[in-house]
Amino acid sequence: MGIFIDAFRGGLAMLVSGAADVWTIVLVSVQVSGAAVLLALVLGIPIGFMLGTKRFVGRRMMLVIANTGMGLPPVVVGLVVAMLLSRRGPLGSLELLYSRPAMVIAQLVIAVPMVAAVSAAAVSAVPRELRLQARSLGASPLQVAIMTLREARMGLLASVAAGFGSIISEVGAVTMVGGNLAGKTRVMTTAIVQYTRMGDYGAALALAVVLMAMVLAVNILLTRVQQSAERYEQ
């Protein structure tokens, strides 16, 4: 057990003393995943709203895609994004490979289907009659959409949490498109892999604790959302 105690002591010291590289890594993680989740909301919620409220040709297909997307293996996403951004790839001229934007793109691809699918479920739980009711009281289509999203706000929060939780824990895709460059594209997951490989268990454990704390916070939020989920009365 000595290995844990030593590592824990070393890691704690690093966190408390504010060892620069550890906190830089945490910051990069939060920046990349935060940006990815925000963009995923911008793209995913309108898609989810459409899927959850409108009836149109191809809707079922899109739902299948969104739900499949939730289970998309991140390494496959990493591979495809890496190929697109590689020097010989169609987007190679942007020279984005091994940069934070590349990581944001990869995480965005992972998170959008998740946000779309969860928000579609949340929005479709808002009764159609409530939208009809809003319309009958004079709401414009945009105002009806705003009302629907407001009603589904708990579910939307869940989609944010679920999306953030999955991409911040992800390691494969960010390694492939980010390259794990110290101080630049090194995030918590890739750093943990790196430190563990080097035998620097203290640093690895310190990051693991921070990562766990974040994921735990997300899950607490999710559980509370589920508990407080209000149901529509008869």
Partner: peptide, 30 residues
């Protein structure tokens, strides 16, 4: 014309929030 109409349906679907919020909904739109 739409603003001159108002409806209530068989199942009284209410918005989340207070009774006051619900009753005020159409007034806020206006």
């Amino acid at each position: 014309t739409r603003m001159s109409m108002a409806a209530a349906f068989q199942r009284p679907y209410l918005f989340k929030g207070t009774v006051g919020d619900n009753v005020a909904y159409g007034l806020r739109l206006r």
